Amino acid sequence: MTKVAVVTGASQGIGAATVSAYRKLGYHVVANSRGITPSGDPGVLAVPGDIADPAVGARVVEAGLAEFGRIDTLVNNAGIFIAKPFADYTAEDFDQVTGINLRGFVAVTQAAVAAMLDQGGGHVVTVTTSLTDHANSSLPAALASLTKGGLNSATKALAIEYATRGIRFNAVSPGVIATPMHPAETHEFLAGLHPVGRLGAISDVTDAIVFLENAPFVTGEILHVDGGQSAGH
Rank of each mutant, 00 (worst) to 15 (best):
L25V: 10
L25T: 10
L25F: 12
L25H: 07
G26W: 11
G26T: 04
H28I: 11
H28M: 14
V29G: 05
V30S: 02
V30E: 00
A31W: 06
N32Q: 08
S33K: 01
R34I: 13
G35L: 03
G35A: 10
I36H: 00
I36V: 09
G40E: 15
G40Y: 04
D41H: 14
D41A: 11
P42E: 13
P42M: 08
G43M: 09
G43V: 04
G43C: 10
V44M: 09
V44D: 07
V44N: 06
L45S: 04
A46Q: 07
V47R: 00
P48V: 05
G49H: 06
G49A: 13
D50E: 01
D50H: 01
A52C: 08
A52I: 04
A52S: 12
A52V: 06
A52E: 03
P54I: 09
A55V: 11
A55M: 12
V56G: 04
V56K: 01
V56E: 02
G57T: 05
G57V: 00
A58M: 01
V60S: 00
V61F: 09
E62S: 15
G64R: 02
G64Y: 03
L65S: 08
A66Q: 08
R70N: 09
L74A: 03
V75L: 04
N76T: 09
N77G: 06
N77L: 08
A78R: 01
A78D: 05
G79W: 06
I80N: 11
I80G: 07
A83M: 06
K84P: 15
K84C: 15
P85W: 09
P85L: 12
A87F: 15
A87H: 15
D88A: 13
D88I: 09
Y89E: 08
T90A: 11
T90I: 14
A91C: 14
A91F: 15
E92V: 12
D93R: 00
D93P: 03
V97F: 07
V97Q: 03
V97K: 07
V97M: 10
T98S: 14
I100E: 02
L102G: 08
L102S: 15
L102K: 06
G104C: 08
G104K: 02
F105V: 07
F105A: 13
V106C: 12
A107V: 10
A107M: 09
V108L: 03
V108S: 02
T109E: 10
T109R: 02
T109N: 04
Q110S: 14
Q110P: 04
Q110V: 08
Q110L: 08
Q110I: 02
A111M: 10
A111H: 01
A111D: 05
A111K: 03
A111F: 06
A112D: 10
V113H: 11
V113C: 08
V113A: 10
V113Q: 01
V113Y: 00
V113L: 13
A115K: 00
